[in-house]
Design a protein around this nucleic acid. Structure first.
Lengths: 113, 113
DNA sequence: TGCCAATAGATTGGCTACCAATCTATAAAT
DNA sequence: ATTTATAGATTGGTAGCCAATCTATTGGCA
């Protein structure tokens, strides 16, 4: 999979893996990779600015979690984030429908091949 | 639909609408728009460089067609272009499967909601 | 005890690929 | 005659993701 294939859909991916509970950056990368069957390997340089942006616009909230001396930032969906996730899913369906109908047009029905 | 949503999938779209026969630039734009239900409106500044590139790498061939004094360049799939189209379709399915499985994970089966 | 790898977070700069704007030219409409 | 639609082409701008690089802590291992 070409690396920047997620372009335009990153926000949805991030919001989606946070739907079932808060995660920190590394865990987000791992969750996306796992749920995509190992196909999508997001980069740290990709997600950290995105997470910051999503927090800035109010779709995520974050809190430092301390594990011993180690601290990590856990991100959580806000209510607005949850609504945005629903919107992203709608956008995704519209997107795949549009591209798909051009790329793989339905064969004319009732015509034996 | 955000305008540059086709990013990364443009080649497939172009090859796909040329599958059923040669078309010139304007007709390609119209075909993509029609087959996407009016959603995808490619720009001339998007397709002409792309068509040139696809011809340069051997996926398309082109010929000037004269309509009266008017001339227009008609693009046609080469054999390599036809093979590339098949590859693009495979890539598209892999892409939608990957993003889709993260964005809309299948609910656990056998669990009444 | 020192060293390396893995985990964790953050920033910088660069590149790809698409788009908006702009240009030329012809044909049809007004 | 002027405008509008068709048709092709190029230029510059920019959004968004990535590679590289930096810091810091923890744990394994020799």
């Amino acid at each position: 999979m070409k690396t920047d294939a997620v372009r335009g859909h990153l926000d949805g991916l991030l919001l989606s893996v946070l739907e079932s509970g808060p995660l920190h950056g590394y865990a987000i990368i791992a969750a996306v990779q796992e749920r995509s069957g190992g196909v999508l390997e997001l980069r740290k340089g990709t997600i950290y600015p995105a997470l910051n942006r999503l927090e800035r616009i109010g779709l995520l909230s974050s809190a430092w979690e301390s594990v011993g001396e180690r601290r990590r930032r856990c991100y959580e969906l806000t209510d607005a984030g949850r609504r945005s996730l629903a919107t992203e899913r709608t956008r995704w369906r519209a997107f795949t429908a549009a591209i798909g109908s051009v790329l793989e047009p339905a064969p004319a029905p009732g015509h034996a091949t």
